[in-house]
Simulated scan of single mutants.
Amino acid sequence: MARPMQDPNIRIDEILDAAEPLFFTKGYKKTTITDITSKMGVAKGMIYYYFRSKEEILEAIINRQTQVLLIHIKEIVSSQEKNPVQKFECIVASMFRTIQYRDGVLLNIGIVE
């Protein structure tokens, strides 16, 4: 009996959710596709259906965090309760929170040694 198809977006999120902490703890360079698929409990080949490379996975993680940041910035900009200086301060603070997200994962992924 064939397995039911899973929503591709759900599987992509699962891959990113597995890769992100590995990039943080092991570093981007030391994390392998096998590490990611082992953490997920899936066959190695499955990941290549969604991503061509580890670099594409990193890019997707960065894009996901950027989208979250943009949502926060739009909320700040549209706020009627803050003056322009307060909005600017909130935007800068939001950018730093995104960079420091999950104990600094975006700063500590070990891309540069």
Rank of each mutant, 00 (worst) to 15 (best):
residue 4 P to W: 07
residue 5 M to N: 12
residue 5 M to I: 11
residue 7 D to K: 05
residue 8 P to K: 12
residue 8 P to C: 09
residue 8 P to Y: 08
residue 8 P to E: 13
residue 10 I to E: 14
residue 11 R to G: 03
residue 13 D to L: 06
residue 13 D to Y: 01
residue 16 L to P: 07
residue 16 L to Q: 06
residue 16 L to K: 07
residue 17 D to I: 04
residue 17 D to N: 11
residue 18 A to D: 06
residue 18 A to Q: 05
residue 19 A to E: 02
residue 20 E to H: 06
residue 23 F to R: 03
residue 23 F to T: 03
residue 23 F to W: 02
residue 24 F to V: 04
residue 25 T to V: 11
residue 26 K to L: 06
residue 26 K to Y: 00
residue 28 Y to H: 03
residue 28 Y to F: 07
residue 30 K to A: 09
residue 30 K to E: 10
residue 32 T to H: 02
residue 32 T to A: 03
residue 34 T to G: 06
residue 35 D to E: 03
residue 36 I to L: 03
residue 37 T to L: 05
residue 37 T to V: 04
residue 38 S to Y: 05
residue 39 K to V: 10
residue 40 M to T: 05
residue 40 M to E: 06
residue 40 M to H: 05
residue 42 V to K: 13
residue 43 A to T: 15
residue 43 A to L: 13
residue 45 G to C: 07
residue 46 M to F: 07
residue 46 M to S: 07
residue 46 M to H: 04
residue 47 I to E: 00
residue 47 I to L: 03
residue 48 Y to S: 04
residue 49 Y to L: 11
residue 50 Y to M: 13
residue 51 F to W: 03
residue 51 F to C: 02
residue 52 R to S: 08
residue 52 R to I: 05
residue 54 K to N: 00
residue 54 K to R: 00
residue 54 K to Y: 00
residue 55 E to L: 00
residue 55 E to R: 01
residue 55 E to I: 00
residue 56 E to I: 06
residue 56 E to R: 12
residue 57 I to Q: 08
residue 59 E to C: 07
residue 59 E to R: 14
residue 61 I to P: 02
residue 62 I to N: 01
residue 63 N to I: 12
residue 65 Q to L: 04
residue 66 T to D: 09
residue 67 Q to N: 10
residue 68 V to C: 08
residue 69 L to F: 11
residue 69 L to T: 13
residue 70 L to K: 13
residue 70 L to T: 12
residue 71 I to E: 12
residue 72 H to R: 11
residue 72 H to K: 14
residue 73 I to R: 07
residue 74 K to Q: 14
residue 74 K to P: 11
residue 75 E to K: 10
residue 76 I to A: 01
residue 77 V to A: 13
residue 77 V to N: 10
residue 78 S to R: 14
residue 79 S to M: 00
residue 79 S to E: 01
residue 79 S to K: 04
residue 80 Q to N: 14
residue 81 E to F: 15
residue 83 N to G: 08
residue 83 N to R: 06
residue 84 P to Y: 03
residue 86 Q to M: 14
residue 86 Q to H: 11
residue 86 Q to R: 09
residue 86 Q to K: 12
residue 87 K to W: 01
residue 87 K to F: 01
residue 88 F to L: 14
residue 88 F to P: 12
residue 91 I to F: 10
residue 93 A to L: 15
residue 93 A to V: 15
residue 95 M to S: 12
residue 95 M to E: 14
residue 97 R to W: 13
residue 99 I to E: 01
residue 99 I to P: 01
residue 101 Y to E: 08
residue 101 Y to P: 01
residue 101 Y to G: 02
residue 102 R to M: 12
residue 102 R to G: 07
residue 103 D to I: 04
residue 104 G to D: 00
residue 104 G to L: 01
residue 105 V to C: 11
residue 106 L to V: 01
residue 106 L to R: 00
residue 107 L to K: 02
residue 108 N to G: 01
residue 108 N to L: 05
residue 112 V to C: 08
residue 112 V to Q: 09
residue 113 E to G: 14
residue 113 E to W: 10
residue 113 E to L: 15
